[in-house]
């Protein structure tokens, strides 16, 4: 028997842990991913050009709201809504509470010392997520419409690489929105007795349907975030004549 180092128990200092795995990789990658998107989307919104080409319209500028009284980029008139939807999303809350707020950065790793209040006081606005959901559902319709329009070229119907990219963007964003925890609550999660409630069976089926997407909500959150940025980048590069949109059909 060999005596070894002494430790205090419990030990709750910041970032203190006895985990031996690479627990910091997850929050680090999350930080890089979120910061990269924030920087790119902000830059793209400020550009106020190269957001359209042929039948393609960047999702950062959809729907295109151009008013004489609005001096800034039209992107700022709409980006607050998807930004609010993602900011108050339960998955993203986990992601940035871990990566940026460090409360905690990983499980069984000391959290940032503070007077902890949770999602009360200043963060009580997170409860308004359902209102951003309502707007996000409208955006799903708008982006799906834009995706359909992207098949309509000057010389008739066709399929370009951009059409497929825009269609996938609408699919990913819709899948992300359909997995929303607030939607899951609204369609049937708030019912305790499906066999007693009005339209109980239908609401149960709706709840199960939303649950299918909800299980992979984090996957849809990341793929839709990446793809919306990629869609804007693709249309921007085509519009700037840096790359050519390939017509498949």
């Amino acid at each position: 028997m060999q005596r070894n180092i002494s430790i205090q128990h419990p030990n709750r200092s910041f970032l203190e842990t006895t985990r031996i795995d690479n627990w910091w990789v997850g929050p680090l990658l999350t930080s890089i991913g979120l910061l990269a998107f924030i920087f790119y989307s902000t830059w793209a919104a400020f550009q106020n050009e190269h957001y359209q080409w042929g039948p393609y319209l960047s999702p950062f500028y959809a729907p295109l709201l151009e008013f004489e009284w609005w001096p800034l980029s039209p992107a700022f008139l709409i980006l607050w809504a998807p930004a609010g939807f993602r900011f108050t999303c339960y998955y993203y809350r986990k992601a940035y509470y871990r990566s940026f707020f460090l409360t905690p950065s990983a499980c069984a790793v000391g959290a940032r010392p503070q007077k902890y209040r949770g999602e009360r006081f200043l963060l009580v606005f997170q409860n308004l997520h359902r209102y951003f959901l309502y707007i996000a559902l409208i955006f799903c319709v708008i982006l799906s419409y834009d995706a359909i329009v992207s098949f309509s070229f000057e010389n008739g119907l066709g399929v370009g690489v951009g059409s497929i990219i825009m269609t996938l963007n609408a699919v990913f964003l819709t899948a992300f929105t359909l997995g929303c925890n607030s939607l899951r609550h609204l369609v049937g999660g708030n019912v305790d007795c499906y066999s007693c409630a009005s339209f109980g069976h239908q609401r149960y089926q709706a709840w199960k349907f939303v649950s299918l997407f909800n299980v992979h909500h984090n996957f849809w959150a990341w793929i839709s975030l990446f793809w919306v940025g990629f869609t804007d980048l693709y249309i921007r590069l085509v519009s700037m004549n840096i790359i050519t949109d390939y017509r498949i059909l």
Binding site: Y90, K94, T103, P104, C107, A108, G118, E119, R120
Partner: peptide, 15 residues
């Protein structure tokens, strides 16, 4: 029961 204190970082689910 302080439900608002939970910031859903999901460590409970992980373990």
């Amino acid at each position: 029961f302080g439900l608002g204190y939970c910031n859903i970082t999901k460590c409970c689910t992980e373990v």
